[in-house]
Design a protein around this nucleic acid. Sequence first.
RNA 1: UGGGGUGUCGCCAAGUGGUAAGGCAUGGGAUUCUGACUCCCACAUUCGAGGGUUCAAAUCCUUCCACCCCAGCCA
Length: 560
Amino acid sequence: MEIKKAEPIEATNFIEHEINKDILAGKIHGGIQTRHPPEPSGYLHIGHVRNIVMNYGTAKKYGGVCNLRYDDTNPLKEKQEYVDALQEDVQWLGFKWGNIYHATDYFQANYEIAVKLIKEGKAYVCDLSPEELSATRGTLTEPGTNSPFRDRSVEENLDLFERMKNGEFEQGSRCLRAKIDMASPNINMRDPVIYRIQYLEHQRIGRQWNIYPSYDFSHPLDDCLEGVTHSICGLEFEDHRPLYNWVVENSGLPNKSRQIEYSNLLIKNTVSGKRNIKKLVEEGIVWGWDDPRLITLRGLRRRGILPQSLIDFVVAAGLSKTTTICEKEMLDFFVRNTLNEKSRRVMAVLDPIKLVITNYEGEGEEILLEDYPQRGEETTKRSYVFGKELLIERSDFEVTPPPKYHRLYVGNKVRLKGAYVVTCTGYDLNEDGSVKCVYAEYDKDTKSGSGVEVKVKGTIHWLNAKHATRVEVRKFDNLIADGEGSTSERAEIGEVVYNKDSVHINKNAYVEAGVDYNLADRYQFMRNGYYALDCEDSKPEALVFNEVVGLKGSYKPEAK
RNA sequence: UGGGGUGUCGCCAAGUGGUAAGGCAUGGGAUUCUGACUCCCACAUUCGAGGGUUCAAAUCCUUCCACCCCAGCCA
């Protein structure tokens, strides 16, 4: 891959400002390099999109490269399943990595640097148990105390570390610690553990290693080894930065990567965070990682949300160091925006009532409907059948219309999308008082495309009762955290109540006959910004539609 | 009560001493064969609060307040 020598660009966020400063200060000798370092311990969700956009996007803007690196230093949590899914999801988003690396690729190098640190007296093997170690770490307000093993000789440390590597000791019995400062006000600097013993089957390298470097040790090293110039990560690592720098400085590696932190992106009242989502999956509260009620990439995808919307949303949300909790409406806007641009339109009726065109004679006639009206003249068209007996949306007729209602009521004219202008003449009621059937007369001169202009205030969508396919429509709500307040905004599991009725199944919806729901295409319902789609993973007859797209600007009877 | 961060419109967010960008949401209007889209117009005399420096401060100093993160051999 061609890598451009770093030059300042017009900064759109504080990270770019920082990078520009580094370039101007002459700290960058080649191109900009970043990395996307997920731990394969779960599926990607919308919060990760910011990280992905930052890393891949920033590298791209500078003409540099972003590599994908699996941060697989903890076999306990990681699975091949997640490794595979991660790549698919990043590709689905449309980002391209330079190379794929694994933290495990650097285990030998990490090990050698650890040995070097031991030789320099900067690391030591500690025999304290995890409990003992914790007890000597001190507290937030009190300093820790030195380990009794802190001043072991280099020879003894070397020997012990070698034997840890060879698997001679029990898990948890010993660890390698960096010798920094037990009195540091920053707890991360109180002789952090940099290697631990673990006899676990690693999803990638099996039982090759008995010792595993910790994140704090391997991450900065891997960054430097790989040539990363800027290691962009979450705010939670901010107070690890001194340790990051300590490792970089003491590694002896020529490339000095710099860590820059930014805040995470959350959506208000949604359950976010890999750990939280995982819990929902494991406890069976949702169907899986791709449950459409979830904000995982796969969940959003099954809801019909396109990757472009997510990227646009994240870019629009900007970047800062304050915790970003966006309202769902903001995401909705970008979802609508992309869908509006890309979806193929199709007529559908979610809650049907019959409309009879009393003066219509004959078996029916062909009409043409635009597939993509947003493309203007470029659009393809499909053929559909107009007839005597139609289905319309229940909400498109009112017995006693509220003020400013301009759809169907007795005496009112309305255009049937793509077909004729009709005048409502009457209706039948069921025994329970609900509307059974609506009657109307059509004006044969008003066919769409005929050039005859009739001013009507409403246009409604419809289906031919004989040429409509009954489909199951499922509506998914975000699985939301309970109510207001900072705790629930963060959507911590265990502290929140979930909306119970988050899936709405409507088996009485209809769409145009002949529409192929196996296509990986998006369809937009006729009015109100409802979108329907088939999703690859769902059953062919299942049509998912998402309310996330909202009902912007629809008729509000309460508004005068 | 230790350390590290953050506080600019209902929600995001620019701004880095020269007199408050933009997006979402909202309200109003135009247009419309989707009450969608599009298009106009409105929307912070004020930047967590109080002091101070300066001709001039959201930007500098200072005191205070609020919230977030850190005591895994997790990342």
